[in-house]
Amino acid sequence: MEIILVHGDNESQIKQVVLQWKENFKNKFENSEIENHENLNFKQILNLGLKTDMFASKKLLIIKNSISNIAKEEFKKIFEIESQDIFLFVEYSSVRKNLKIFKEIQKNHKIYTYLIKDFDLKKHIQQKFKEQNKTINPLNLNLLATKLQNQINNASNEIQKLCLLDTQEITKSDIDQHIVANLETSIFELTNNLFQNKTNYLQTLNNLKKEKIEEIYIINMLIWQLKTLSQIKLNDTKSLNPFVVRNNSQIAKQLTIQDLHIALKKLVEIEFKIKTGKIKTRQESYQYLQYLV
Rank of each mutant, 00 (worst) to 15 (best):
V6A: 00
S32G: 08
I152N: 00
T146R: 12
T171L: 05
F119D: 04
E269F: 10
I223M: 00
N36P: 10
I136G: 14
D259P: 10
K273D: 15
E33M: 08
L205H: 11
K265I: 00
Q106S: 12
T237C: 14
N47F: 04
I116W: 10
Q13C: 03
P138A: 00
Q287C: 03
S66G: 08
N98V: 03
K238V: 11
Y217P: 01
K43T: 15
S32F: 02
L264A: 11
H178P: 00
I257R: 05
L260Y: 12
K265Q: 06
Q177A: 12
Q177F: 13
K130E: 12
N41H: 14
L48E: 07
E211F: 06
H178I: 04
K100E: 15
L5Q: 01
Q20Y: 13
M1S: 10
S249Q: 15
T135C: 13
W224Y: 13
K238T: 15
K64W: 06
I219L: 05
E82W: 00
N182R: 07
G8A: 06
I111S: 02
T281A: 10
V244R: 15
L164H: 09
I170N: 06
W21P: 03
K128I: 13
K147D: 03
A155I: 02
E91H: 05
H7G: 08
N133E: 15
E82F: 01
K278F: 11
F75R: 02
L264S: 07
V268H: 07
T199V: 10
K64D: 05
V18T: 01
Q290D: 05
N27P: 01
E169G: 12
K26V: 00
P138K: 01
F195E: 02
I179H: 05
I34P: 11
S285D: 05
E82V: 08
F195G: 04
V180Y: 06
I67E: 01
I63Q: 08
W21M: 13
I34Q: 08
L226P: 02
E80M: 06
K253Q: 01
I116Q: 09
A56V: 03
V95M: 02
E131T: 14
K280D: 04
I14V: 08
C163N: 15
E82D: 14
L60P: 07
A145W: 03
S249D: 12
L48P: 09
I187E: 03
F25A: 09
V293F: 08
Q44V: 09
K134C: 07
L50Q: 12
E73N: 12
L165S: 06
Y92N: 07
Y201S: 04
L5V: 02
I219K: 04
V245Y: 08
D53Q: 03
N69A: 14
I279G: 02
L88W: 01
I159H: 09
D53C: 04
K43W: 04
I274E: 11
E184H: 09
L139T: 14
Q13M: 02
E215A: 14
L255C: 04
K59T: 07
Y201M: 03
E74N: 15
N192I: 04
K117S: 07
N36Y: 15
S12W: 08
K107H: 06
K77W: 10
